[in-house]
Design a protein around this nucleic acid. Sequence first.
RNA 1: GGGCGGAUGGCGGAACAGGCAGACGCACAGGACUUAAAAUCCUGAGACUCGCAAGAGUCGUGAGGGUUCGAUUCCCUCUCUGCCCACCA
Length: 817
Amino acid sequence: MTDYNYSEIEKKWRKKWEEDKVFEAKEQQEGEKYYCLVMLPYPSGDLHMGHVRNYGIGDVFARFHKMKGKNVLHPIGWDAFGLPAENAAIKNKIHPAKWTKQNIVRMREQLKVLGISYDWSREFATCNPEYYRWNQWFFIKMWERGLVFRKRANVNWCPSCNTVLANEQVSNGLCWRCDSRTEHRDLEQWFIKITDYADELLEKHKQLSGWPEQVLSMQKDWIGKSFGAEIEFALTGTGEKLKIFTTRPDTLFGATFVVVAPEHKIIGEIKPRIMNYNEVAEYVAESGRKSNIERASCKEKTGIRLEGVNAINPVNGKEIPIFTADYVLTGYGTGAIMAVPAHDQRDWEFAKKYNIPIVEVIRGNDSCGITQSVDENAYEDEGVLVNSEQFNGIKSIEAFGVISEWIEKQGFGKKTINFKLKDWLISRRRYWGTPIPMVHCKICGTVPVPEKDLPVMLPEDVEFTGEGESPLKSSEAFVNVKCPKCGMDAERETDTMDTFVDSSWYYARYCDARNSNMAFDAVKANYWMPVDQYVGGIEHACMHLIYSRFWHKVMRDLGIVKHDEPFINLLTQGMVTLGGRVMSKSKGNIVSPDEIIGKYGADTARLFVLFASPPQKQLDWSMEGVEGCWRFINRIWRLFDVVHKKSDIPASEKNKNDILKIMHQTIKKVTIDIEKEFQFNTAISSIMEFVNALYAYKYHSNDGGASVEAYKTVVLLMSPFTPHICEEIWEMLGHRGYISTYPWPAFDESMMKQSSIEIPVQINGKLRGKIMISTGTDEDEIKKIIETNEKIAPQLKDKKIEKFIYVKDKIITISVK
RNA sequence: GGGCGGAUGGCGGAACAGGCAGACGCACAGGACUUAAAAUCCUGAGACUCGCAAGAGUCGUGAGGGUUCGAUUCCCUCUCUGCCCACCA
C-alpha cells in the first residue's frame, strides 16, 4: 500500500465534489430539510484558526445530517462591508472595494482547501449592489412602517475611527474596534426602532430552547425589562411637572430628594429660577466632558443642588430639594429619579454626603430575624411599610401594586415598563457601507428613493482621508439629485448603514441568493428557514444575535417569512488560544492554518480543532496535539492493510462478536455525540478506541468479513471530521459513489448486549473486588456467588451484613459491622 | 456591584437521572523491528507506603462541612478563576 499522500488525496476529492456538485442544495430534493449556518466571515485578509474551528464544527453538522438523509443547505458568504477596508484605503491608498475583493479571493482559496461541504453556488459578498440594494429596500420598508426615524442625538464618537458608534460598539467607554476612548457628540442620526420589538425579543426566548442558557441570559440582561412607575413631581413656583421613573413605587413616602441627569432639559427650562445657575452649568459642562466610563468609575458620587427650586412629593405635599448628578443616566427611564436614601444604596451615599434626611419606609428583617436599620446602609430588601400613612403595615411587595394603582387613581403617575434596550443607531459617517436610500428636499423633507431606482450605488469618485465629514459628501455626482417627489434640486443622504444590517438577514438571502427581483423568494425562504443549526462565536450574543432576531420579526411582519425566530439551535464555539492567550496579530502568536495544512493536510487540521476540546470550550493550540491527530489519521490509513491481511489463525466466534459489539457501541456513541451532545471530542475518542480494538484483533482470515465491515464503519464515522481521506479509503474499499452521500451507519442495540460482565463489589464503600456475572443475574444468585468467591468471602467472615445493595448489572455494595 | 460558567494526573480532557475516577490523546518510560535513528507495532504508568516480585494497603476530582450503603456528580459555607453586564433608579 502506498503512503498517505494527503496533498494529492485532498486535491482530488475537492475537485470531484465540485465537478459533481455534491453539495449544491436544491429545494425539490427528497428528505427533511436541514439548514446548517456558520457566521459569515469578514474578509480581513487571512483565515485564522478561529475560522477553521467555526467552519470545521459547522461541517460536521452539515455532513452528518446529509449522511442521515437530510436535504442539507450549507452556504457561505462574505460580510464584506466595514471599517478595516476603509482604513486600508486611507493607509495604503487602495480602494476598499479592491482591498476587499483581494481578501475574498485569498480567503476563499484558504477556505476551499479545508474541504468544507459548502454550496458555493450561493456564495455572495454583502458589498455587492445585488445584495445591498435589499438592505436599502428593507430600510425603506421600515421607514414606511415607522420603524426608521431620524433624530439629533448624543452619540458615541470614536475620535480614532472618526465615526459614530452604536451603544453596543462601545465597551467600557472604549471603541470596540480600536480601543480608543470614545467621546460624546450631538449629531443628526438614523435609528431603527428595535425597541418596538423589545417585548417580543424577550418573550420569544421561550422558543429558543436550543440556545445556550448563557446567551439567553445575556440577551435578557441586554433587553433589561423592568416594571415600575412614572410619577410626576410638581416644582415649586410655577408648578411644572417633573416626571421620574422608579422601580420601587412602594418607597414613595421615603423620597427625600429628586435627581435629574445633567442633560435633563428641565435645567434649561427653569434656568431663571435656579439661584446658583452658574455653578450648576459648570457641573453640567464638566459631566458632558466625561466619558461614560469616567462617570461610572467615580468612587464617590457627585452632584449639585438646584438652589431656589424644590420638588413636591405628591403623596404628602412635602418640599424636597432637586439635585443634578451624573449617576443618573439621561438615556434610561425619564432621566430623573426620586431618591429614597433609606432603601437605595446609591441614594444613601448621596444623602450622607449632602446631608439630606434619610426616612425609613420599609422595615425588614435579615435572615437571622434581626430588624435592619438604615443608619449604616440602605435596606434594599423586602419588608413592611412604615412612615407611609395609610399604607403602613402593608408588605412592600404588595405595596408596589397598591401604591401604583393609588398613584394612577390620584392622577399623578402611572405604572410603566422600561427597557435598557435602546433604539439601534444605524447611520455611519463612513464610505464602505450601504448608502442610506434617502433624499433631503427643501420642499418635501426627507423622501425615500423610489424602489425602482434601487440600488443607490456607492460612488467610485471618493477621497479617503479618514477625517472630517462623511466621505460620500466629496462626490458631487452622488450628493446632487432631484427630489423623487417634486423633481427639484435636492441632496442625497450621505451616511451609510451599520454593517450589522448586512448580517441581519443574510441567512435568508442564502435561500435564494441569485434573485434579482426581490430580496428572496418567500416560498424558498420558508422551505429552508428557520436555520436548524447556527454556529458562531459567543461575542455575537448581544449584537448580531439580537439584531438578526429583530430583523427576522420585521420580515415576518412584512409577510416574507413565516417563522418568528431565525435560528432554532445555536452553538457558540470557544476561542482558539495559544498558551492560554487569544491568537492575534498584535500579540504575534498566530498559528497560520496554511502552515498546518501544508505540513499535515486539511484533514489533520480539522481533526485537531475538533478533538482537542469540546466545541463550546476554549481550545488551546498544541503542536504535539496536532502530531497526535496526524498519527491517528495515518493509523486509519494503514488499517486498510491490517484488515485485509491474510492470517492463518482462524477468527473465533467470540472475537468476531466482540468486534461487532464494539462497532455498534461506537456507532451509537458517535451518533449521539454529534446529534445530541455536540461533543465531537468524545465522538472521536470512541472511534480511536474502536480503531485500537481493530488493531488488537488480528484473526480475520475467516471472520466472514467482520473486520472489513468494521473498517468500513470506522471510515463512515470519521467522514464528517476528515472527509478527504475517508473518500479515498471508501474508493479503495471498492465503493463507486461518494462516502459524503452514503447513509450514516445504523446501530443495533441487540448487537451490543453482553452475555457476561464484570461488576465491582464494594464493602463499606470501598472497592474490595470484582466478580464476573451473567447479565441479568438476580440478587439471590449474586449472594451465592459472593459467598463462594475466594476473594470476597474471607472479608465477610465473622462480620454482620447490615445491608446488601445490588444495582442490577452495575455494582454490589455490602455494608458490614 | 449584578448575572452565568469553571476548578479532575506533568498537559488537553473523559466519566454526572449518585454506582469501578482519570476513557481518548499528548508528553514520558520500557520492549519489538533496525547496523543505528526516525517511523511503526506492543507494553506500562494518579500519588504515597510496604514488598525482590506477583501483590497489598492508604490517600486522592480547589478547601471545609452535610445528605447517602455509596458523592467528581446533590445541599450549605468558603477560596480562586473565566466570561458577560455594569451608577438601569
